[in-house]
Write a protein that binds this DNA or RNA. Sequence first.
DNA 1: TGGCCCTCGTAC
DNA 2: GACGTACGAGGGCCAC
Length: 941
Amino acid sequence: MSGRPTGGTGSLFLIDANNFLFRAYHALPMLTAPDGTPVNAIHGYVRMVQAVRKEFAPQYLLAVFDAQGGTSWRRAIYAEYKANRPPPPDDLVPQIPLVREATAALSIPWLEHEDLEADDLIAAYAEHGAKQGLEVVVVSSDKDLMQLVRGPDDVREGSVRLWDTMKNRRVGPDQVVEKFGVGPELLGDLLALAGDSSDNIPGVPGIGPKTATGLLQEYGGLEGILANTAKIKQKKRRERLEAHADDARMSRKLVALRTGYDLPTPLEATADKGPERARMDAFFDPLGFKSTLAGSVGGRGGGTRRIAPRTLSETMSKLEGLVLDKDSTQIIQATQAAALDEFLAAAKQAGHLAFEVELSGDDPMRADPIGVALAIPNVAKPATLLRAPVYLPIAHRSLSDAGTVQWKVDALFKQLAPLLRDPALTKYTHAFKNQAVVMLRPDIGLSPVGVAADTMLASYTLDPARADHDLEGLAKDLCGRTVGGRESIVGKGKRQVGFDQVDVAIAGPWAGERAGLVASLGPHLGAAIIAAGEQTLKLYQDIEVPLSEVLAKLERRGILLDVEELGRQANELGEQVQALRDSIEAEAGYAVDPNSPKQLGKLLFEDRGLPAKKKTKTGYSTDAQTLEELSLLDPIVKHILEFRSLTKLKGTYLDTLPTLINPDTGRLHTHFHQAVAATGRLSSSEPNLQNIPIRTEQGRRIRRGFIAPEGMTLVTLDYSQIELRVLAHLSGDPNLTKAFKDGADVHRRTAAEVFEVSEAEVTDEQRRVAKAVNFGVIYGQSAFGLARQLGIPQGRAGKYIKAYFKKIPGVTSYMNALIDSAKDTGFAETILGRRRRIPELSRRTSTARAYGERIARNTPIQGSAADILKVAMVEVERLLADKPWARMLLTVHDELIFECETAQVEALVQLVKPAMEGAATLDVPLLVEGGAGPTWESAKG
DNA sequence: TGGCCCTCGTAC
DNA sequence: GACGTACGAGGGCCAC
């Protein structure tokens, strides 16, 4: 098993600093300090180091660098060693010396050597540490260093392992064998044979890792192979080995890690004493890091922490002085391939690229790519671009210049793909999910792209309560620039046309300007995310951005409907609806539309003289609650209620769902929205699959229309009581916590507490009340609301609430603390640090403030549950990536729905359930329950 | 006719 | 006024 390192006393952690510096640079969007210094790599590096410290608390900690401009001893053997390395990107260069200062500021000893490379130094320390019986962990992903791995897998003392913090992966002997087919002791021989293009190690031409593994397994080592070349049957291979035996021996020397010299710093001097605040602040404050390093970790929401209130202008500060000429976009035709090449080369050189693929229509599952806009961010000065944006037309039907030659979709994407897939390039876009749905198409095959920055998600992460996160709005608010939305060029409603109908002369500059805005706002918002702190960065980078691609996959997959079943039900309901309409009109004595609240109000409260209890802005209220109370007084009311219920089911679900089936796939593809709900939840539309009925028998039948294809089964896994569990965790209330730890029926337990009876004595009615109170607490319900919900007098409802708060005191104080904290800071916060501003708390009217308080109470709970689900989704999709027999299709707030080969259902549950339950570690267990069946209804049974 | 608002109802 | 988060159907009303 590849567990995690143990750490603590008896451990030595060796950080391969250059390795992480480069990886952090490529993984993070560009960020700049207030003075314009690029800092993204430093940030990622510091984050990694601090995480290692926090997680493993090593006894000894040392960072090792390659000396800049050093003369490795390997050069003396082979002048071409690492000669093909491209120079580091321009905006990484200034970070290379800074990262050494950062290491020092963190009070971590560091080393570099003129003649020895970091790998050699690490090897020497690892060897020494292992001899001392320490657990040695090399923090790196470098395969050369895997040669150092030693010790049996289950013995800690004297072992050497690699730890890849970015992938959370430990590399021990088993992982080396898994990856290379040979153990660590033969790895050097393998690398010598196969060569390494990144270090320019020649190896033996024509021998790759696969062949090398085979040879090593047969002959036991490099010298064994070279001594037995005569026995090798393949002529080519034999000749090559004979001709390049010297190259192989030299390569072997190059890949060997040099040890056996005095350690430049004694091991004892690397004992980690932890960071010093003052030293850190002095270095990091000017770089704008601050909160990043505080090492703050979510923990309890509560009112104990005091965070300075933040206003929108601080979380999303303006980007001053935007330089973006809206007419500067260069249209590059298919005949100008050289111009595109040149642009792409510039992007590669810069290391950054903003793009937007323009789609023909609004539904990405039915859309084609019509053009691509590109821009090159100037990360050191985000308000400017490195050059004018370009637009590459693909499928416009309207060309004012008839001579325009458009790109063929495959030719263009073929040219773009290497760049878009290049992990060394930082990609920026807006609302990537919609583009990804198209890019994932097999005929386009532009995935994975590995977008690092999505301006829509950045905006949402920073300020989820913002009205909307479209690029136009961000341009207006952050750059003071007015740009037309998509609607401004394709029209809307009946006059809306496809993007392909828009002339290139209009579409090109519009799209180019958007790419330009993304190029400017991407780095700018990235800096804001960094400034907002460690948690916000993780939320954005590790959850929201990866999730967007997961959602794109879900949308592409869609779900299968049983159209006949839905049709049957629709017909059935249609007849009932007609019969009800007839009897309502017969009872009324005149034609009336029971769907019209206005006509209904007149009928019931004027003509029939029923007591009107409630009024709406426009007249009498006729909602179900009101009608329910009247149903005993007049039989017509029952018919109206029944009519309402059936027309709702028929109109919203049975009739609508089949019309949304995609004719190409024969399946239903919903649209998930990641930047809509202010709490962090997802939403879905066209159709909204998150409000398919379940509570009534009649409604639940609709789920029979959602099916798995032949040979497959629908599997649903949902979190049991996730919001109440989150509440138990956040509030720390001992009673609630214990209820979950005991695996009790929490509503029954609550009832027992509140009504002071034993659990066995709890009546159904008491349980119902307790359940309502439990949920009411989450929503900030008042006695009035509870009374209305339960149909009991307000006084009695008030008593229940009082009793609840008395018996579950932790929740009371937690709720008060939430409000205090929100008033104090101006926002509500989830367990993963998602922050929702609550301006309502400082409104003048008491109604608005009360609303703000309900938000303050509800958002941490609802939002934390959403956080957990999102973490689970990213992890589950990763787990299923290589499982062709199952795929995730849908999510409904606390539920994930899969399609799975029937024989594999158990395997799926075994895989996914623990992943979901482990998505967060709370003070109470997370419990996932599941079901499976041919239809969604049966799966939920 | 199109578009917006209101009311109502479905989910978690 | 009174329960948080969504989406959407249908009626009603107004502008064009």
